[in-house]
Design a protein around this nucleic acid. Structure first.
Length: 805
RNA sequence: GCCCUCGUGGUGAAACUGGCAGACACGCAUGGCUUAGGACCAUGUGCCGCAAGGCUUGGAGGUUCGAAUCCUCCCGAGGGCACCA
């Protein structure tokens, strides 16, 4: 008798597997390629946390399951190591990011190895290595060539503490997501990727990819398509035309004034040389200052000023006064909007500045309609509202008239159908050190010149002082040996771009590099990609539902258009895993509630931790980490150990029906990532087997094969104990026989008026006649019926009978 | 405000296309083993009730022979978007 000693078992097999390179896949020779991808981690100084372990375990179980089904599973691992996190940490500790990064990665790798996953370490990727970011820069150049990368001046979110530009998503309620400082607006020359060009495709393709609905919904929201009408109007007495977008065109006849954004480029032209010039410019300046200071209270302040100009509003043959209004967004639509009585904001604005209002839609209730007419309140988004204008549509409902109104507007040539998107271009410039330099050279003679591909990579120089200076320039700007260079075109003196690119660019293509890490001459090889991509299964956190996944899709589409890859969607299947919390709260350093998996590995072993995490609840939903439940898993593995030990050399018969039933259940659950119920089924199987037999070898073997994806170490050890020479991880996934799954008899439920009154054991396939006979002779049924005659009998074969009286 | 996801015992959670609600665990209780504790084993455990029986899936209605599951409204939680016209 030997006791289960997880540390010993796990150390032993980890060593053997490593030596045998047990999980190595020959990418060229593989016959049934299956690319099982998980989001690669950012190697923080704290090491792997429980959330990482959760994600990787869930993904690895799926990979091992596919492997057992005969696929050549490629399950690579790497490190998303560039970025502001590493840099901030390095600044705080006074260690160079490069040094720190190497340390972190070493720690991570060692932790990951103990997890017992199928990782293909011979294809590891580290985004900070020149061999990798050379190709990140190369991708930039490809996009630049076709105009998908461009430089533009743009107001950007600037964090005065981190001294860098932030992406929109890094700004939470006007504050920096990292240091909580008030973000200010700044105008800078920045590099952008034209992701907006792909808005419609990014949206439409969502229909044809197998992703969790939640993730798709987030992407749809982010892209934010809005359909409506674009009108075009002339400014009275001026040669200026404005395009105006309206997503609620039904009430277009209600428009009585026009609002324009304070930042609108044509605003100055409107007021130049008029009596309004001074007051308008003062107003604009005040608004800009408020916005920069982020003191603008969205709820209360809707301020405006008259420009002295009018729009010639053709459909209603009236003039609309143009007002500058603080609430108008400059970079959505055209920055100019016609306002009406049927929009709450416009209504409030009009009341405040005594502007005319002209409602054209009313409730059916005449008393309420009178109130709307007398402008007592704003009547908006009312699905049952009835139009009175234009005359052709009088009496028709707001909700059904939309299409016809748009047709009508188009017929009159007042406007046309268009779509607007909330999606903005992707700002990729970062005024930081720890990232790949953007491969661009500025020459006084030749202008902006891309670095020739043969000169890649543009190496990130080792800079001692990499702290951002707050000048709006990257730390690289203070390294003359980096900045000063020759123009690739004219050989004259020139300067390098000193910004680095966004970390999200590194991670937007890493999955293409994994299978090609051994190729030095190009980013990826067409033949290999053809064989292995798109990725079969991608698993990662829901927090990346928008940015990472959207950027990745965009880069893939662009590469597809450029002819580098043959697919436009990178991930056939994506599943988001849930979040692991601690006492209901998200684990974070600042809260001090981060669980370190190492402690649990030491105490129970990786197998138990893996099993416990998967048992907490549905993989897609995550759960709360508490160390209470973990003992249950440890007990289970100990019971398994004992059972297998007893079944050595046993010739007891197996529980055929339950065995097949369990195989079916576990197979189906694994396919759908329902690990918690698969584990429950395996526990039942062990419980039943232990009860029924001293130890059936057949049952023990089946248990081990089915459990192997979850707990790779103990199953391997026990497999050997049963006397096999080969590995449990080389065993084919067992199949089940539908005939054997079905039992000979079942428990028939007897109901009266839908309430269960009795349960009797009968044989499968029993006829309705027989059932009725049996049911009506049941004592409990007779008692419940009290002599009443059944009016109807519902019979569900092999399940129940319901007697209605 | 709009869009998604969800709400089931003391706890984590099960329940396939509507068909025995609470599988599997944790915890708890009782008993066994043990000097004791732990570990382990056995049994029990939704609520009310001595019992017969009744009640029970956030709340209120509805559809159905039958609803955790479908429909309507309301309440609550989590997430995404948001002065987006």
């Amino acid at each position: 008798m030997q006791e289960y000693n997880p540390q010993q078992v796990e150390a032993k097999w980890a060593k053997i597997w490593e030596k045998k390179k047990a999980w190595k896949v020959d990418l060229k020779k593989a016959k049934k390629p299956y690319y099982n991808l998980m989001m690669f981690p950012y190697p923080s100084a704290e090491g792997l946390h429980v959330g990482n372990v959760y994600a990787f375990t869930g993904s690895d179980i799926y990979g091992r399951f596919k492997r057992a089904q005969g696929y050549d599973v490629f399950e690579p691992m790497g490190f998303d190591a560039f970025g502001i996190h590493s840099e901030n940490f390095a600044i705080k500790k006074g260690v160079h990011p490069k040094t720190q990064n190497a340390k972190n990665i070493a720690h991570f790798r060692q932790q990951l190895e103990s997890l017992g996953a199928l990782f293909a370490w011979d294809h590891e990727v580290d985004t900070t290595r020149p061999e990798y970011y050379k190709w990140t820069q190369w991708i930039f150049l490809q996009l630049y060539k076709v105009g998908l990368a461009y430089k533009g001046k743009a107001p950007v979110e600037w964090c005065p503490s981190c001294k860098t530009v932030l992406a929109n998503e890094q700004v939470i309620n006007g504050k920096c997501e990292r240091c909580d400082s008030q973000v200010i607006q700044k105008e800078l020359e920045q590099w952008f990727f034209r992701i907006t060009k792909y808005a419609e495709r990014l949206l439409k393709n969502l229909e044809k990819i197998d992703w969790s609905e939640r993730t798709k919904a987030s992407q749809r929201n982010w892209i934010g398509k809005s359909e409506g009408v674009q009108f075009s109007y002339k400014v009275k007495d001026m040669d200026i035309h404005f395009e105006m977008f309206d997503s609620v065109p039904q009430t277009f006849m209600a428009q009585t004034f026009t609002v324009i954004a304070p930042e609108h480029p044509k605003l100055y032209e409107l007021v130049k040389g008029t009596e309004h010039e001074k007051s308008v410019l003062e107003f604009v300046e005040a608004i800009k200052q408020k916005k920069a200071a982020q003191k603008f209270d969205i709820e209360k302040e809707a301020r405006g000023i008259f420009t002295g100009r009018y729009i010639e509003y053709t459909p209603a043959k009236r003039l609309l006064p143009i007002w500058v209004a603080s609430f108008v967004i400059a970079d959505y639509g055209s920055g100019v909007v016609n306002a009406s009585a049927h929009d709450e904001r416009d209504f409030a604005f009009a009341k405040k500045y005594h502007l005319p209002l002209h409602p054209v839609m009313f409730p059916e209730d005449p008393i309420e309609a009178e109130k709307v007419k007398s402008l007592e309140y704003c009547y908006h988004h009312a699905v049952d509202g009835v139009l009175v204008e234009p005359a052709e549509f009088k009496g028709r409902n707001w909700s059904e008239v939309r299409g016809d109104i748009v047709d009508y507007i188009e017929r009159n040539r007042w406007g046309k159908r268009v779509s607007q998107y909330h999606l903005r271009d992707w700002l990729i410039s970062r005024q930081r050190y720890w990232g790949p330099p953007i491969p661009i050279i500025y020459c006084k003679k030749c202008g902006t010149v891309p670095v020739p591909e043969k000169d890649l990579p543009v190496l990130l120089p080792f800079v001692k002082n990499f702290r951002p200076e707050g000048t709006g320039k990257s730390p690289l700007a203070s390294v003359p040996s980096f900045v000063k260079t020759k123009c690739p075109t004219c050989q004259g003196p020139a300067e390098r771009e000193t910004d680095v690119s966004d970390t999200f660019l590194d991670s937007a293509w890493y999955f293409l590099r994994y299978p090609c890490t051994d190729i030095k001459t190009k980013a990826f090889d067409a033949d290999i990609l053809k064989k292995w991509l798109p990725v079969n299964m991608y698993i990662g956190g829901q927090e990346h539902a928008v940015l990472h996944l959207l950027y990745t899709r965009f880069i893939t589409m662009a590469l597809n258009d450029l002819g580098f890859v043959e697919f436009e969607e990178p991930f056939k299947k994506f599943r988001a895993h849930g979040l692991i919390t601690k006492e209901g709260a998200k684990m974070s350093k600042s809260k001090g509630n981060v669980e370190n998996p190492d402690d649990y590995f030491k105490k129970y072993g990786a197998d138990t931790v893996r099993l416990y995490l998967m048992f907490i609840g549905p993989f897609a939903e995550g759960g709360d980490w508490s160390d209470k439940g973990i003992v249950g898993m440890y007990r289970f593995l100990n019971r398994l150990w004992g059972f297998v030990e007893r079944s050595q050399g046993s010739s007891e018969a197996s529980l055929e029906s339950l065995r097949h039933k369990t195989i079916q259940k576990v197979t189906e659950d694994l396919e759908n990532l329902r690990y918690n119920t698969a584990i429950a089924a395996l526990m039942e199987y062990l419980n039943e087997s232990s009860r029924a037999s001293k130890g059936s070898k057949k049952d023990a073997e089946t248990l081990l094969i089915l459990l192997a994806p979850f707990v790779p170490y103990i199953t391997e050890e026990l497999w050997k104990m049963l006397g096999s020479k080969d590995s449990v991880h080389g065993q084919p996934w067992p199949s089940f026989d539908q005939k054997l799954v079905a039992e000979k008899s079942f428990k028939l439920v007897l109901q009266v008026n839908g309430k269960v009154r009795d349960v009797i054991e009968v044989s499968i396939g029993i006829s309705q006649k027989e059932v009725e006979k049996k049911a009506l002779s049941s004592e409990k049924i007779i008692k419940t019926l009290q002599g009443k005659k059944p009016s109807k009998v519902i019979f569900v074969p092999n399940r129940l009978v319901n007697i209605v009286v």
